[in-house]
Measured scan of single mutants.
Amino acid sequence: MAAAAAAGAGPEMVRGQVFDVGPRYTNLSYIGEGAYGMVCSAYDNVNKVRVAIKKISPFEHQTYCQRTLREIKILLRFRHENIIGINDIIRAPTIEQMKDVYIVQDLMETDLYKLLKTQHLSNDHICYFLYQILRGLKYIHSANVLHRDLKPSNLLLNTTCDLKICDFGLARVADPDHDHTGFLTEYVATRWYRAPEIMLNSKGYTKSIDIWSVGCILAEMLSNRPIFPGKHYLDQLNHILGILGSPSQEDLNCIINLKARNYLLSLPHKNKVPWNRLFPNADSKALDLLDKMLTFNPHKRIEVEQALAHPYLEQYYDPSDEPIAEAPFKFDMELDDLPKEKLKELIFEETARFQPGYRS
């Protein structure tokens, strides 16, 4: 834990890192770190609560700039109880001085990944967590956004079992017609939660990839272990087919990539493993919904509104309290091709509203 900075004593240090967030945020305490930044909790002297502050230093890398800009653009436009918001952003007053960006968010005690390492969940908890994931996802999908990296560590939890989806750095506007060349190379989302079509096709992607990830998360809540822990690309596919069985001819016809289709045709026939054999203690309604989410063919996979209306979630289902976005989200430009200098300018502009004396 960093010592509390005395008023006016300059930035606090946390594990050798400068955290320049005073005077409003003090009493910093280390939480963890990701690929390009550290997260601390801090005391907000204005709202009198502890908050989470993520320090991001992305400006050396085009990919990190892209992810940072995506996350900020999306989260500043989203407003939903099951999606983490941005409360404040701290950065230098000029673009030349801006080396880091500090993002202030609600402090959540833990995440689903940490929880599943230590606790076996009751059916009631599984049901409530799944409902909140789908409630947040309904809003995301209504904005025409794909999260693309749903996994237990991106689901934040607090002691009252509130759940918030975080990390929109890989999110995209849904565009089933656009052929994202190089899709697989830039697709760094965790393999275990990846839909089979991501490994088999490169053309376009749809909201059904997020539903697949939610199915993987439900299976993990039922058993405290990942359902498809593939060691590499082909191993991942083999794990999936080992449980779902061989795809039907109709399902194979959806695979545009001939090499991928021929690979699947070359494999020995596998039978589907019954879900109640894998999860003998699970609620039968939970397994019915799991089956509809972990469907090989993305066109037959359940959609988020149908999933919310499934009998497993009937005690929570309330369409009048499951809000959607006001308007579909649009990125003005494809960020993939922009140089990091341009992305830095866009991050600077996007964060201006939090600067003292800002006038829109």
Rank of each mutant, 00 (worst) to 15 (best):
11 P>D: 08
8 G>F: 01
64 Y>A: 14
73 K>M: 10
221 M>P: 08
133 I>C: 10
36 Y>V: 15
178 H>P: 12
344 K>A: 08
228 F>E: 02
131 Y>H: 03
233 Y>S: 11
353 R>G: 05
228 F>R: 05
357 G>S: 12
23 P>C: 00
290 L>F: 01
263 Y>H: 00
201 N>L: 09
335 L>D: 09
70 R>N: 02
26 T>A: 03
209 I>E: 09
167 D>I: 03
330 K>R: 12
128 Y>A: 04
277 R>N: 06
235 D>E: 14
302 I>T: 00
176 P>G: 03
279 F>K: 05
131 Y>A: 03
156 L>N: 04
345 E>S: 04
114 K>N: 15
132 Q>V: 10
97 Q>Y: 04
331 F>S: 00
240 I>D: 05
152 P>H: 14
161 C>H: 04
79 R>V: 14
9 A>V: 11
203 K>M: 04
186 E>W: 02
105 Q>S: 10
121 L>C: 06
170 L>D: 06
106 D>L: 01
8 G>Q: 07
282 A>L: 05
50 R>A: 09
238 N>H: 14
334 E>H: 07
262 N>M: 06
287 L>K: 04
266 S>D: 08
260 A>M: 02
11 P>H: 15
51 V>L: 10
131 Y>L: 12
151 K>R: 01
310 H>Y: 11
179 D>P: 06
321 D>P: 02
126 I>T: 00
7 A>M: 02
4 A>M: 10
164 K>N: 15
299 H>Y: 14
108 M>E: 07
216 C>G: 12
120 H>G: 08
50 R>E: 11
235 D>S: 06
85 G>Y: 06
83 I>E: 01
43 Y>G: 07
212 W>N: 05
143 A>S: 13
98 M>Q: 01
348 F>M: 11
353 R>V: 09
214 V>P: 10
86 I>C: 03
89 I>G: 01
73 K>L: 11
20 D>I: 03
214 V>M: 12
261 R>M: 12
209 I>P: 04
212 W>K: 05
12 E>F: 00
351 T>P: 13
225 R>F: 07
196 P>I: 01
6 A>F: 00
248 S>F: 10
78 F>D: 05
80 H>G: 04
99 K>Q: 13
239 H>I: 09
160 T>S: 15
23 P>K: 00
100 D>H: 08
211 I>H: 10
83 I>G: 00
46 V>Y: 09
206 T>W: 07
334 E>S: 01
327 A>G: 00
305 E>M: 01
34 G>T: 04
191 R>F: 06
20 D>P: 11
73 K>I: 14
326 E>C: 03
113 Y>V: 10
61 H>T: 14
271 N>Y: 14
289 L>P: 00
271 N>W: 02
232 H>S: 00
173 V>I: 10
311 P>F: 10
210 D>P: 04
223 S>N: 07
139 Y>L: 07
217 I>T: 00
236 Q>C: 02
296 F>N: 09
